[in-house]
Simulated assay, not measured.
Amino acid sequence: MEKALKQFLQAGNMTVANLLLRNYRQLGMNEQELVLFLELSSSIQAGDSFPAIDQIASYMHCDSNQLYQLLHRLFEKKLLEIKSVTDENGKSHDVYQFDLMYEKLFWLLRQKNQQTQQQILVVDQSEIFQAIEKEFGRTLSPIEMETIEQWFSE
C-alpha cells in the first residue's frame, strides 16, 4: 500500500452533527470557533480529551494566544467547559466538554419544532374556518368565530 494512502487511512475520521453545521451561527459561533470545536472534537474522538493548546494551534495555523482567546469566547458563550474527572486509577485530569453547546442546540431544535407546529396549527385553523364558511355558504359572524375559537382552545 502506498505510504500516503496508509497515512490517510491511519489518520481516521470524525463525526460531526449536521444540526451543528447548519445552526452554529444561531449558537453565536463564528467560523474560527467552529473550527476550534472541530479540532477539539477530533482529538476527543481520537481518545485525547484534553489536547495541548500548542498542538491545536499548529493544526489551525494560529498562535497559542489566538487560540486561548477563542477558547475564552466559547467559555463566555457557555458552549464549552472544562471538567475534572477521575479515571479508574484514581488519577484526576481535565477534559473539554461540549454538553452545554449540545443542550443549546437541542433547545434551538425544540424551539424550531414548536414554531413549525404553531404554524401548522394556524394553517389548520384557517382551513377549518374556510370549510365552515363554505358549508354555510356565507362568512361567519363574529359570535360564530368566537365560538369556534373557544373550541380550538378547549
Rank of each mutant, 00 (worst) to 15 (best):
M1T: 11
E2T: 08
K3N: 14
K3T: 13
L5S: 11
Q7W: 04
F8M: 04
L9E: 14
L9V: 11
Q10S: 08
Q10E: 08
A11S: 08
G12E: 02
G12R: 02
T15K: 13
V16N: 04
A17L: 14
L19G: 11
L21T: 14
L21M: 15
N23D: 13
N23W: 09
Y24F: 13
R25P: 05
Q26F: 14
L27H: 10
N30P: 04
E31M: 12
E33C: 07
L34P: 08
L36N: 02
F37G: 08
F37D: 12
E39I: 05
E39S: 13
L40R: 03
S42K: 11
S42A: 10
S43D: 12
S43M: 04
S43P: 00
S43V: 00
Q45S: 03
Q45K: 04
G47Y: 03
G47E: 04
D48E: 10
D48L: 05
F50S: 09
F50Q: 05
A52R: 12
I53G: 03
I53F: 07
I53S: 11
D54P: 07
A57V: 01
A57R: 02
A57T: 02
S58F: 10
S58W: 10
Y59K: 05
M60R: 01
H61R: 08
D63G: 02
S64Q: 09
N65A: 04
Q66R: 12
Q69Y: 00
L71F: 05
H72S: 12
R73Y: 08
L74D: 09
E76S: 13
K77G: 07
K78Y: 10
L79P: 07
L80N: 08
E81M: 14
I82H: 06
I82L: 10
K83N: 12
K83Q: 14
K83V: 06
S84H: 13
S84Y: 10
V85S: 06
D87I: 02
G90Y: 05
K91Q: 15
S92C: 09
H93P: 07
D94E: 14
D94P: 11
V95H: 08
Y96I: 07
Y96P: 05
Y96Q: 08
D99E: 12
D99Y: 11
Y102T: 11
K104W: 14
L105V: 04
L105M: 07
W107D: 15
L109Q: 15
Q111N: 15
N113G: 14
Q115S: 08
Q115M: 07
Q115V: 11
Q117W: 06
I120R: 10
L121F: 03
V123A: 15
D124R: 15
Q125A: 10
Q125N: 14
S126Y: 05
S126C: 04
I128K: 01
F129Q: 01
Q130E: 09
Q130W: 01
A131E: 03
I132L: 09
I132E: 01
E133W: 02
E135V: 02
E135R: 01
F136I: 01
G137K: 03
R138D: 01
R138L: 00
L140K: 00
L140T: 06
L140V: 00
S141F: 00
P142D: 03
I143F: 00
I143R: 01
M145I: 11
I148C: 01
I148T: 04
Q150C: 05
W151P: 00
F152W: 07
